[in-house]
Structures are given as structure tokens and as C-alpha cells.
């Protein structure tokens, strides 16, 4: 009996691990190398300084082509900016609003409640400006790719100057080691000292990639820290409650032969 129960539970674990893994392993691009991220593990949290550097990279580089439509300026509180800093950042952006009393659209400086504006007015414009490839929105990028942050980091650092011999690289495409099919429309976006850090962090391509990947992980999972903290509490509570329920069960069943 007990054996059956154990087998069944093991099977439940196995099936989840097995099929999850199987689904994830699909794809013909190389599997990106696993990186160490500060938010991994049971107690991992975001590194605010890193998120802010990553934001700087996004703002100065990625934002030229990629939108971040699920993030409002007010959300930047989550990476450690205070209200005044957020207002200042928001005010740097022009937000289209309206219509005004004359029925016209107008632009005004951004407010904390505004969302990051898209660099292109619509998808067609985005495609037209980028040789037909629409730069995807980055808000959920780390959740929307197999491999998550490891993939995003791998992609940003995985450009190669020359395609391997015999590889037929189309015009206007770039060779990327980790991109499925290896032909990517995005030119290598990062380079050493692409962004000026003020906190003494080395300004290498790899560091920029690492920081912006961390920032994008935050945009994809802003609830991560709250989730894990609550999870610890919930599981500790459940362990206590379940132990107590087990004790009560033993007591109640004590006199029953079963």
C-alpha cells in the first residue's frame, strides 16, 4: 500500500519534471549556458544597483527599437527609485495625450502613471523601420523564451563576426550563436562602454548584457521577491499545520486496527 502511494507520488514528480523538461528541450538552437543570477534559489533577490544599471542600458540602447509596454514609470519604484526620481525620469519622455478641447492630440511630459512609450507608432511602422522584422516588446521577454534569462544573456553576447564557413547568411542578417536558425535581424546592440556606468562597475559588453537581462527579469517578474517571501511563510505554516494534522490523525486512529 505504502509502496503504491510512494510510487504514485514519485510518478507525479517524474511526470512533471519529465514532460516539463521535454517541452523545454525542444528547439534546434544550442542550449544557452546557465548563468548565476542573484534572484535564483529559495532566497534569491534582485540586486537594485544592477537593475538600475540594466534600466540605463534599456533606456539608452534597447528603447530605440523595443517597447516596454507593461511597465509604467511608477513601477520603477520596484528597482529602487524614489518618487522624485521617477517623476524626473517620466518627464524626460514625451507622451501623446488627448484629444484636448479643440479635438487635437498633443504631447506632454510623462507622468508617473504613464507607461513607457513605444518607439514606433504602430507595428507596421516598426516593421518598415527594421527591414520587415518587428522588434518584440521586452516586458515579458525573460518569461517568453525557452531558457529565460540565460537565453536573453546568451543572445546578447552570442553574436559572431563571421558566420561559420558554409553558412548561408542572408543580406541584412547577423549571425547569432543562440538565436534559433542563427540568422537574426537585430544588429549586435551592445559593445564595450556602450553605456556610462557611474558606480564603477566595469563597462564591458558582457556586464551590460548581464545587467539588462537582470532588468528584463524584473520587468517580466516584478512580483518575484514578494512571491518568494510569501512562499516561505506559507510553506513553513503548512509544515507546522500538516505535522499537527498528522499528530491528530495518529491519535484518532490509535485504537483502530487498519
Amino acid at each position: 500500500m505504502r509502496k503504491f502511494a510512494l510510487t504514485a507520488i514519485a510518478a507525479a514528480f517524474a511526470v512533471t519534471a519529465f514532460t516539463g523538461g521535454a517541452a523545454k528541450a525542444a528547439g534546434d538552437a544550442p542550449v544557452p549556458e546557465a548563468q548565476d543570477w542573484s534572484w535564483q534559489g529559495l532566497f534569491g533577490t534582485y540586486d537594485r544597483a544592477q537593475l538600475q544599471r540594466g534600466f540605463q542600458v534599456y533606456k539608452n540602447i534597447c528603447a530605440g527599437c523595443h517597447s516596454l509596454r507593461f511597465i509604467a514609470f511608477r513601477n520603477l519604484e520596484g528597482i529602487g527609485f524614489n518618487e522624485d526620481q521617477i517623476k524626473a525620469i517620466a518627464a524626460e519622455y514625451d507622451i501623446e495625450d488627448g484629444p484636448n478641447d479643440d479635438g487635437d492630440m498633443f504631447t506632454r511630459p510623462g507622468l508617473a502613471s504613464d507607461y513607457f512609450p513605444s518607439p514606433f507608432p504602430n507595428e507596421k511602422a516598426a516593421a518598415a523601420a527594421n527591414g520587415g522584422a518587428i522588434p518584440p516588446d521586452l516586458s515579458l521577454m525573460n518569461k517568453a523564451r525557452v531558457g529565460g534569462p540565460d537565453y536573453v544573456f546568451g543572445l546578447l553576447t552570442g553574436y559572431e563576426e563571421e558566420a561559420p564557413e558554409g553558412f548561408d547568411l542572408a543580406d541584412g542578417k547577423y549571425y547569432n550563436h543562440y538565436f534559433p536558425g542563427h540568422q537574426i535581424s537585430m544588429a549586435p546592440p551592445l559593445y564595450d562602454e556602450a553605456v556610462e556606468y557611474t558606480d564603477g562597475t566595469p563597462m564591458t559588453l558582457e556586464q551590460h548584457a548581464r545587467d539588462v537581462t537582470a532588468f528584463l527579469n524584473w520587468t517580466a517578474q516584478p512580483e518575484l521577491e514578494a512571491r518568494k517571501a510569501l512562499g516561505m511563510k506559507v510553506i513553513l505554516f503548512l509544515l507546522v499545520l500538516t505535522a499537527m494534522l498528522y499528530a491528530v490523525k495518529r491519535k484518532i486512529w490509535r485504537d483502530v486496527e487498519h
Binding site: 516539463g20 512571491r227 512562499g231 503548512l238 500538516t242 494534522l245 498528522y246 490523525k249 484518532i252
Partner: peptide, 25 residues
């Protein structure tokens, strides 16, 4: 009581996914 105990064990299993690997499946 036996069912309640079972629910307790199950909730621990469930919580691991919800809080620590919500997108795994």
C-alpha cells in the same frame, strides 16, 4: 482527519510550484 492531513501534504507540494516555480509547467 485523514483527508485533511492529505490536503496539508498536497498544499505543500502545490505551494512549491505556485511560489517557487510558477511557470515551470
Amino acid at each position: 482527519i485523514k483527508d485533511l492531513y492529505g490536503i496539508g501534504v498536497f498544499l505543500i507540494f502545490f505551494s512549491v510550484f505556485v511560489f517557487f516555480a510558477p511557470d515551470f509547467l
